[in-house]
Design a protein around this nucleic acid. Structure first.
Lengths: 249, 249
DNA sequence: AGATATTTTGCAAATATTTGCACAATACCT
DNA sequence: AGGTATTGTGCAAATATTTGCAAAATATCT
């Protein structure tokens, strides 16, 4: 029995049952416990299920899809999150601001990761309650309702005392000429501050945001350390971004 | 049965019933009392429910949302919120901390009220997005997952620059002898700080919390300015609290 | 095709987690 | 106040996981 065949079967099983134990899987598929365990680990790495002690359970969005019949998972998020998570190591201090992509990455972080996440996004903060080992620091300030983040001089002041290892910056647009830019002035200032207190800056962008331009510039493209997209780093669309001292993943 | 499966079942049960006893859970899920007990503790640590003596109840914010949907709201909350809202005037700066009662009051605030709410409760902050005229300031700090509030020296530091008109303090217990006390040390210190930066302190307590005692004292009863309960101010239960310089509503 | 790498698989010992139980301490109820 | 129920702890058995290793299967190269 091929590995892919097994893994497909595991996902199908989870699609109907929502949960399986590794022992069951081993018997059903007629392979060793170890093999199914390794399969499950691989599938978890790809973000296709959630591994738990003794078995696996369907990912919320998979069961969503099955039960409610809505929402095709944006595979872009899955790809981006997987790449992003590779950059995160134990005991690091990670800065994350608002945006859907960051929220998704945070949710997908491995449960055993022991890191500190500093964020100005209260939704992201409370969502991380699911991760017992992650310490969450919420940045204070005025709540900007439209984007559901805190903002303003208080938020910037909170950052004074922080030295983060890396900063996952959400962005609305990225281009070679205009760099990274967003739609809100105060937020652009805040992002600059966040960059300045972080050793590395990483941005994860959806395809639709590449080569777009917005009003308030945050930084030049070359100021980044990593660019993560759902595309293959060799993709044509990323041609202009190469050889600028930014690692493309 | 997988641990996660059990925990999910517990949350689902709570979603519909609002409360469960550990004994019931053990029988329904067909596992030992100890296991469900440990599950409930874990879930509480993640802020997903509230553990009570002998069982668990749905977490404030979840149960609040769920019960509103069903049109069932604890009438105590309604009574308390009406009294509390009378104390709030336009252009005031209001400090509110964690707790179900404050959450309910915040949700019930008139939509045309133009005030600023300062809070260390991210759920309350984001819920106020529904109120376009209310400015929301979120206090930063470490997120204490169990109670879903920010806490610690950062939070206290954020308060340094604030002078509030009134502070709605959540509490776990109130009695004449022991004053107001709660279960968590750091939070008790924070509440003291909040009192010190507010002109008036108001506490809203459910009937069940009257004459109870907890571990960490926040202040004496007489240090309050207003006490709000669902009872008639002339009620027998409040007898001891009269003539102490605290206005009872 | 045949030889050589690479990946996959199953196994076993060392670790770690989960679970149920006992018992003392505490909280609750009438 | 006293009896019962509930908690917090420590413990030991049962289960799971990790890791290294070697055999089998598969892919790669000349």
């Amino acid at each position: 029995m091929l590995k892919e065949e097994r893994q497909q079967a595991i996902l199908e099983k989870l699609g109907t049952d929502k949960k399986v134990t590794l022992v069951d899987l081993g018997q059903i598929l007629n392979v060793s416990y170890d093999s199914v365990r390794r399969d499950v680990i691989e599938l978890e790495d790809r973000g296709l299920l959630k591994k738990v002690h003794g078995g696996a359970i369907a990912h919320s969005y998979l069961s969503m899809k099955a039960s409610k019949g809505l929402g095709i998972v944006n595979t872009e998020f899955v790809t981006i999150a997987k790449k992003a998570i590779k950059l995160i190591e134990n005991n690091k201090i990670i800065l994350m601001d608002g945006g859907t992509t960051n929220f998704y990455i945070a949710e997908q972080l491995p449960k055993n990761l022991e890191i500190t996440i500093v964020t100005n996004n209260p939704h992201l903060a409370t969502a991380l309650s699911e991760h017992p080992k992650i310490e969450v620091i919420l940045l204070g300030g005025s709540l900007y309702k439209r984007y559901q983040i805190t903002i303003g001089s208080k938020t910037i002041q909170d950052l004074e005392h922080i030295q983060a290892d890396c900063y996952f910056m959400g962005t609305n647009s990225i281009s070679i000429e205009s760099g990274l830019a967003i739609r809100h002035y105060e937020e652009s200032i805040l992002k600059q501050k966040m960059m300045s207190v972080s050793r590395k800056t990483i941005t994860c962008v959806l395809e639709e945001k590449i080569n777009r331009e917005e009003n308030y510039k945050v930084c030049n493209f070359a100021d980044l350390d990593f660019l993560i997209t759902s595309l293959n780093p060799a993709d044509e669309q990323l041609k202009n971004f190469r050889n600028k001292g930014v690692e493309i993943l």
